[in-house]
């Protein structure tokens, strides 16, 4: 896996007169899960949208290593949102085949089989449309889609919002696995417990600004995450 850092330099985003992000500067390292938390409307999803290249910042710059993050960098990004980003009328394999073709993967069938096995969907009937999948199965398929092209950066936007406790445990395990593999993982969540289970870097966003930016490679105990979060959100 690459050693490139993702650097966000003085990024702002305005929607008309509303300032969604103000002068945000952050640095994300590979081999670490960075967790972005904050109240509703704080700007977390806007920041993730900018990091995924889908939203253009009004000001500022983002670089992956020495290269600006733009359209060519899409090959290096994997994204899992609260919605799975899967075509419900296609089967799991057909969905992955489509994305393998979009990413022009070589040995696509082999890679698809590996990914289906990894997310425990290899035994699902081949022609079963994703419409018939449970929420947990859809989210597993979404992870397989996001990992299919072996991205350097993995972005997660509230991936556990519709999962049951077993699904959340599975997700935490996958996040750890990706961290161990040296991938740069950014997780936006409301779930402070899930955040404490995986975070080596904690960012709190409040009213579009960075209220806390702390890296702690040994991880954050749950009580510390809660204390840091509450401290960062306290009016200053």
């Amino acid at each position: 896996m690459s050693e490139r850092h993702l650097r966000v330099a003085q990024v702002s985003k305005n929607y008309g007169r509303q300032r969604a992000l103000v002068d945000v500067s952050l640095e994300f390292a590979p081999g670490r899960v960075a967790t972005i938390v904050g109240p509703n409307g704080a700007g977390k999803t806007t920041l993730l949208g900018i990091l995924s290249t889908l939203v253009r910042p009004t000001a500022g710059e983002i670089r992956l290593g020495d290269e600006p993050l733009g359209h060519p960098a899409r090959q290096t990004i994997g994204y899992v949102g609260h919605e799975p980003g899967i075509y419900p009328d296609l089967s799991a394999r057909q969905n992955l085949r489509l994305f393998a073709a979009l990413y022009a993967l070589s040995s696509a069938e082999e890679r698809i089989s590996t990914m289906l096995e990894r997310v425990d969907l290899a035994d699902v009937r081949g022609d079963l449309p994703a419409r018939a999948f449970s929420r947990g199965m859809l989210q597993r398929l979404a992870l397989a889609r996001a990992l299919l092209h072996e991205p350097e950066i993995l972005l997660f936007d509230e991936p556990s919002s519709a999962l049951d406790p077993a699904g959340v445990r599975w997700l935490v395990g996958e996040l750890r696995r990706e961290r161990e593999a040296g991938r740069l993982v950014i997780l936006v969540t409301h779930d402070l417990e899930a955040a404490s289970a995986v975070a080596g870097h904690l960012v709190v966003i409040r009213r579009g600004r960075v209220a806390l930016d702390r890296a702690q490679p040994a991880g954050f105990p749950a009580a510390q995450v809660r204390a840091l979060y509450e401290e960062a959100l306290r009016d200053r």
Partner: peptide, 18 residues
């Protein structure tokens, strides 16, 4: 509308397809 279901459009827009 099929792109809207499950936010498939987001995955499509994130792919390298122009």
């Amino acid at each position: 509308d099929r792109e809207r279901e499950n936010e498939a459009i987001r995955a499509l827009l994130l792919s390298p397809a122009p």
